[in-house]
Amino acid sequence: MKEKIKKIGKWPSLPAIALLAILFVYNGVLNPGFFKKSTFFTFLLSSTPMICIVIGVCTCKIVGGIDISLGNLLSLINVTMAYLFSSSDMAAPVIILIGLLIGLGGGLLNGICIGVLRVNPLLATFATSPVYWGLALWIMPTPGGYGVPRELISFVNKTHFGVLPTAVAALAILVILWLLYMKSIYGISIYGIGGNEQSAYVSGMNVARSKVLAHVFGGFCAFVGGLVATGLIASGDPNIGTEFSLKAVTAVVIGGVALSGGEGDVWGALAGGFFLSTILIAIISSKVPTFAQNFANYSIMLCGLVLAVVIKLGAEYYRTRAKKKQSEEVRQ
């Protein structure tokens, strides 16, 4: 039993989940309407696009890299689909397929620059980000594209079995895919590569391929997010995803995914993402004065970051102390 508790204590995702729980409880107490079915579902639904990006960034981070272009890739996908829906006669499945191809293509571009051409991941995606955003602005300078089909809108907003909005189901699918991927030989290699690239390479893992795949998966997450976003806002908006990239990185850090890679899992990232979404709601429930809202938002974000990191450092400290104690006992 003690072993089990110790194990949970070491779980890198724990701080993020704890933070999320605290904020949920706080919010629920101040505003019981938050947990009403329709409100909570809309909260989940409107957070879903960003959370998709969080999952994508989480994957890239575990490989020891990062991706800050996924938010703008999502915007590009959303804008392209909305544009095609309203200005062309293509069938809906074709348009959605095009969206998928854009997502995979963007992810592939990132992956090639990072995995094959060995450009620093932060800088590579720092460069591809304006490429995607610029394309999105070029295609649709103003939000518009009102031709999104009713079926897509209602599909995204629908609730299955009375309890599960489709959007959340999309998240669940991504998470399941992620778990399957990680358990597979490709996935395990990701952790190895993230932890130590040299030794992973030496032990025969195809580092370049794993990195490319990780970023393509990120692109796929952007596609899912873009599809949900299109159904959610029923139009195209070139700026819808601009804020998502940096927020996602913050969420992933809070979620305990180490910057150096090789550690952490998707649950912490999810918790971190929802934590960030809930902050802005909590600010409403707390009736923070308007001009202080910005400051409050970032303060809490920073507190969350510090907490998550400090807890992790603390855990490491206790672990090394316990190891020292063990080795001393062994010697005696």
Partner: peptide
């Protein structure tokens, strides 16, 4: 009476509006 800022994120605005509507 309350004024709420969405920090330039349209999905946040949706979420905030719904939270406020839930308060009645």
């Amino acid at each position: 009476f309350q004024v709420v800022s969405a920090d330039n994120d349209s999905t946040t605005q949706i979420s905030q509006c719904n939270a406020m509507l839930a308060e009645g």
